[in-house]
Design a protein around this nucleic acid. Sequence first.
DNA 1: GCTATCTTATTACAGCTGTTATAACAACAA
DNA 2: TTGTTGTTATAACAGCTGTAATAAGATAGC
Lengths: 193, 193
Amino acid sequence: MSKSAIEGRQRVIEAAAAMLASHGLRGISIREVIKFANAPLGSTYHNFPNGKQQIVTEAVQWAGEQASAQLQACLAQDKENGIQLFLQQWRKRLTKSEFRHGCPIVAAAIEASEEEDAEPVKQAVSTVFAHWQQLLTTHLISLGHAASYAQSLAVAVIACIEGAVVLCRGQQNIAPFDAIIECIPAMLAAKQA
Amino acid sequence: MSKSAIEGRQRVIEAAAAMLASHGLRGISIREVIKFANAPLGSTYHNFPNGKQQIVTEAVQWAGEQASAQLQACLAQDKENGIQLFLQQWRKRLTKSEFRHGCPIVAAAIEASEEEDAEPVKQAVSTVFAHWQQLLTTHLISLGHAASYAQSLAVAVIACIEGAVVLCRGQQNIAPFDAIIECIPAMLAAKQA
DNA sequence: GCTATCTTATTACAGCTGTTATAACAACAA
DNA sequence: TTGTTGTTATAACAGCTGTAATAAGATAGC
């Protein structure tokens, strides 16, 4: 496989992830993704033998890893306020895109749930969510929380963030995100269930 | 307009809301909704001159009112534990549908955001979210929270719930919902920001 | 019963979708 | 150079979509 072909393949995945975040799973077509990525349509099924399902699956995995890396960087940079750091970064991203850019994993989770031949997509979504939870749980334990409560807390924080992103998009307003930035510390302050 | 026609119109709206919750905005077609509602296809543009956009808009409004009524009933029934009551009802609904049934408003919010001619849908989504927030805010104030913090808290609780629903669907597991049921009280316990 | 209005069945359209087949092209090994 | 392989352009497919027009049917008011 030539070098430019590899780059083209990766461009398709990243384009799919970006368009997934703004248009949703069924809002994107192979033709549009390919055009956005400046990649050739003719070689789509050469690079992705399983078609759209495979493109979406790899886009979810890639976007999930990107977010994980970003979260990990925040937590490593400031152990006490790493979560707040992460929240601020997402806040900026939301406002800069004028609430057009959501979470691609959420989009895939919602739109792939009742589709046939979407098992790989659902599997990727589940894995990404699980990885985020594990990252946060570990961090919360290192902050002194009890293991079992840390697990619940991690899930609750992720739910809060994802929900707030949806609310911001729905209301075209950053207020929901500021609300969770204000309220999440109260959850984190409670040391036990 | 005949009585059966009115009933048919309403059935279409409710079918659209139900299918929106499971299949998403672009996962449903007029033909399928009509079939599910046992309504005639020929009269679709008689009942909904603006086509699919109007059906979805009215479905969002109807589903929003249903949820509002349910929330209000819970809060009225038990002032102290009304929110927990509401959470338990949603928990049951999720498990009974085996995580197929999500929130139709969230689906509309995500999938209508970058579509043309979807302003009415987006407007309906925004109104529904705002109404929920207002209901919860009023309740939290009556529980003794400061007005401004009550507002943030209301948004955070809604975000938590919506996010947890998405996580449950993504992981095919009720654990995320149990996690927020466990963690939300900590947020509510903090009387001030 | 007759008329006017409300309602619906049927058919058709044009556009987009994922996918596939075919053939032309490039790059590289012998 | 020859041949083989990796890559792509082009075109076509069958299926679905929202939408529209037409004409037939049902219903209510007189």
